[in-house]
Design a protein around this nucleic acid. Sequence first.
DNA 1: GGGCCGGTGAAATTGATTCTCAAATTCAAC
DNA 2: GTTGAATTTGAGAATCAATTTCACCGGCCC
Lengths: 169, 169
Amino acid sequence: MTTRSQTPAPRARVRPPPDAATPAEARTRLNEWIAERGLKATRQRDLIVDTFFGATGHLSVDELLSKVQERDENIGAATVYRTMKILADSGLASPRHFEDGQTRYEAAIGRHHHDHLICTSCHAIIEFENERIEELQDLVARQHGFLVTRHKLELYGLCKACQARQPKR
Amino acid sequence: MTTRSQTPAPRARVRPPPDAATPAEARTRLNEWIAERGLKATRQRDLIVDTFFGATGHLSVDELLSKVQERDENIGAATVYRTMKILADSGLASPRHFEDGQTRYEAAIGRHHHDHLICTSCHAIIEFENERIEELQDLVARQHGFLVTRHKLELYGLCKACQARQPKR
DNA sequence: GGGCCGGTGAAATTGATTCTCAAATTCAAC
DNA sequence: GTTGAATTTGAGAATCAATTTCACCGGCCC
Ligand SMILES: [Mn+2]
Ligand SMILES: [Mn+2]
Ligand SMILES: [Zn+2]
Ligand SMILES: [Zn+2]
């Protein structure tokens, strides 16, 4: 359901778009992280990670569970919850809390920080980066003596397609 | 727990800070709104509204329920949930979803739109307005053909006091 | 003086997520 | 290969905010 940004170059951005991760690379990286702290590699975790990085977008645990169970119907929901938490702790996936009451995860390997435009009609999610906004956020925080560690910027509204579809008034 | 912004005038803002609502004014406004659609004014609703607008900050329903029950122990949680939903529908209060899994409400009468700095240590909430950021958000949305109806900008980190208190490294 | 209608509050339900616990699995050391 | 301590798994129970249900209440209008 995620749509990738594709504006006609609004103003040349500097940082190059890094490469997305392959499922195999993600599995390797997770297993390194797991080994470092005496945890264990398991078939279930590999399957879940493989499925997650083989998909795109902002997946809810339930959506991911469905996909995982297509490959092995015996995987339990608790295991998917646990595995996604490990992926988040290791920095390989980012949890997102949009306003539908479910935690969604997106791949974080080789990706820049970005924020989201969310269509309240078709639930499309458009990603964007804006360095100026980030700078202004830092400025505001500094003016309040605040040290920011993370932020959330979400713009809710109607995507182009849904505006056309909607009663135009 | 909310702290009001008090920077030494970072750059003269234009809009004057509007007046906050008194509990009595809020009760009146809600009862007008209620009458317009054939609903009923009740003692419970008046009490809840009075308590809510007599308090400050970003109250969870549970916190509000406690305050309300100090005045009338027989008020039920369902009634507070229902009343706050009405206040939100009527535009007199704004629901906020920070990252602690509870809906919080703040008074919206005679207040500008604003965003929040949230201390992850002491849970203080600092409010700010930044016109430049709002403009850039609109610009980003326009570049994607998106029509924004509402947004959320939250900066999480450590407030000044908590930075001092924290291991400084 | 009995319906009509929304409102109330206790209790039950929902839905996402976490917890519990017995059984299964991993893996480093024999 | 085998062992055994530690970890993981999956089903179901527990949690927790929020919503729904439902029997009862209180004005209001014939
Ligand atoms: Mn994203
Ligand atoms: Mn606020
Ligand atoms: Zn849309
Ligand atoms: Zn603090």
